[in-house]
Amino acid sequence: MKEIRFIYHPDNALEKAGRSAEPLHGEAERTCPNCHVTMKESAFRNSNWTCRCGYHFRLGARERITMIADRKSFQELFQDIVSTDPLSFPSYEEKLRKAQAISGEKESAITGLCTIGGFDAAIFAMDPNFMMGSMGAACGEKISRLFEYASEHCLPVVGFTVSGGARMQEGLLSLMQMAKTSGAVKRHSSKGLLYITVLTDPTTGGVTASFAMEGDIILAEPGATIGFAGARVIEQTTRQPLPKGFQTSESLLSHGFVDAIVPRSEMKAAISSLLRMHRRAI
């Protein structure tokens, strides 16, 4: 077969842009999309980007990891794996560059190692600012490698999902990532290792139908949209009004597809405690 290669561009402007734990939002004030209260950005930031009404703002991948990993413990892995344009899909290259500029990331998922509450873990987080966390070959490769690394080193995996699904600009190659990542998750699982997924807003499509739903323990942030097919598509296809709370974390909990809904302020404590409970006795 034709080998698909990822190309790393050392002259990429993003490299020079540097990174910061701070979000890249320019404005000083933000309005909550749920209750419409407007507050200083720092006020939201100081409350883990949650509003007093309970709304959880979407978070960039790096910010997410900063919030969960112990201070200075995050060590990134596989950061040189970036998307190419295997199908020469019209305007995809341009969209990728734009996504990289907006998110400050090279791919829709970042992967690495950290400690959480003192426990070692492999971690991944997807980025809603990078083509809505869509999964192409590079994203699938990073996730698969992380699970392979974790299998080899007997580490639990903690993963934060946010995704619009498979990235259509990479066609079948992105679809294949669903099977590829699932295979890597299965191998990790067969070694008796723990995988915790945290579903955040939104987690849909091919990511829901693969590694997002494959955790031993599946947590969700409050009010997140989680589903396979898009709500609008379902509404158009069935011509039926959607039930209240359809495809929300709360609905998935009541239907038995999520273990617990954990507010952001308690997420690190919840994950640390689960990691502690899965420590091997011998």
């Binding site: 699932s182 139908a209 693969s210 097919a229 069935t238 959607l242 359809f246 495809q247 609905s251």
Partner: peptide
């Protein structure tokens, strides 16, 4: 494609597909 409907979603369409991918690999 997989059935697109309210009930299918509520009964875990994504979860069912994910489980097949994982288990078929094994």
């Amino acid at each position: 494609g997989a059935y697109c409907g309210i009930g299918a979603e509520e009964r875990g369409q994504g979860s069912a597909i994910a489980e097949n991918l994982m288990e078929m690999m094994d």
